[in-house]
Design a protein around this nucleic acid. Sequence first.
DNA 1: TAGACACATGCCGATATCGGAATATGATGA
DNA 2: TCATCATATTCCGATATCGGCATGTGTCTA
Lengths: 113, 113
Amino acid sequence: MARAATTSDVFNAVADVHRREILDALITGEKPVGAIVNDLSMSQPQVSKHLRVLSEVGLVSCRAEGRRRLYRLEPAPLQPMHAWLARYEQTWNDRLDRMDDYVQELQRREQAR
Amino acid sequence: MARAATTSDVFNAVADVHRREILDALITGEKPVGAIVNDLSMSQPQVSKHLRVLSEVGLVSCRAEGRRRLYRLEPAPLQPMHAWLARYEQTWNDRLDRMDDYVQELQRREQAR
DNA sequence: TAGACACATGCCGATATCGGAATATGATGA
DNA sequence: TCATCATATTCCGATATCGGCATGTGTCTA
C-alpha cells in the first residue's frame, strides 16, 4: 500500500526537495527544461520526470515552442495546502485577527467623526 | 536514494494523509493515543508509528499521565512550510497587500484630520 | 505479586520512490 | 533526407514507506 500516489496528491508532489526547487525556479516565469537543468544542476531525465509529476497534479503547465518545451508555474493547486496550514498557523491567524480588529477600530472612528 | 527521510523533513511528515488526520485530531487539544485510535479508526500500532514520525519532526510533544500518553500539537515546525507557500499564493498576498494599503489609507486620513 | 490495561517496538511483505544509464521521440537545419 | 538538438520514456537497482501481526515495556489494580 505504502503512501498515497505522489501523482494525485499535492502534498506528496511537493514533499520532494527537488520538485520544490523546480517550482522555485519557475517563479520568475516560464522556462525550458534545459534552463532548469542548468540552474539546478540536475540530470535532464531527472528534471523531466519531476516535471511530469508536477504536471500531473497541475502545478505546472507546458507549452511547446519549436523543439523546446516551456514550463510555467500553476500555483492554484497549492491553495488546499494553504487552507490546511492556515488552521495551524496561530501566529499568522493572530496577526490577521489583530489586523481585522485594527481596521474595524479605524472604521468606527471614521464613522464617529 | 529515494526521497528525503520522512523523519527529518516536515514536508514529508505531512505528506501522509493519516498523519495529517492525526494532527487535525489534535487541534482541539492534547489526547491519549487511544482516543486517536478511536476517532480515526486506525490500528493502534499504526497510530503509534505515525506519532513517532510526527514527534521526530517536532510536530507533536508527549506527556505521560499514568499509563497513558497524552500527545499535544506543536504547530511551530509548520511555519517553514507556510513561508514557502506564501511565495506562491498570489491571491493571498494580494489580499494582504490590499489590506495593508487600506490600513495606511485610513491612517493617512486619520492624521490629516 | 499476578493480571489487565495503554502504548511502543520489531519483523515482515507488498509496493512506491528516486536516480542513473540508455534509448526513443520529435523538431530543426544543412 | 540525415544529423543534431531538446526533451521524454523505459528499464533497472537500491532503498524507503506503510500496514499488519506479534510481542515487548511500563503502569495500575485486585
